[in-house]
Amino acid sequence: MTIAMTWINVGTIDAIPQQGSRTLTLGDTPIALFRTIHDEVFALVDRCPHKHGPLSQGIVHGRRVTCPLHSWVIDLASGEAQGPDEGCAGHIPLRLDGGQVFIGYTPSAGGCTHD
């Protein structure tokens, strides 16, 4: 069964600091929104594939974030762990519309689309 994805407005890009992040919770899913130095915005499930560390608390560099717990480096665009580490933080569709940030919400997927 397919349950429709809904685009949810989670605020403006200005609410997210450059090279930083903000968090929110949808259903039971903790979500991290990241903004790079070049003003790209990405959303991931806020759980490192390693030991479930909150990625939102990491250092954002380039298009990556380093987990604060054990320094795994996660690609923001895909959620994939980089380097020798393997695993993926749930990736959440995101779109920007005139400075407003929308993320794709799919209730059946435990809150969000993990692809």
């Binding site: 429709a4 809904t6 685009w7 407005n9 989670v10 609410a15 903000r22 929110l24 993320i103």
Partner: peptide, 16 residues
């Protein structure tokens, strides 16, 4: 201040 306050989602745009 932004560090300590989560965002609050609002306004579902449209179901697709």
């Amino acid at each position: 201040a932004h560090e300590f306050a989560p965002l609050s989602p609002s306004h579902p745009l449209a179901a697709e």
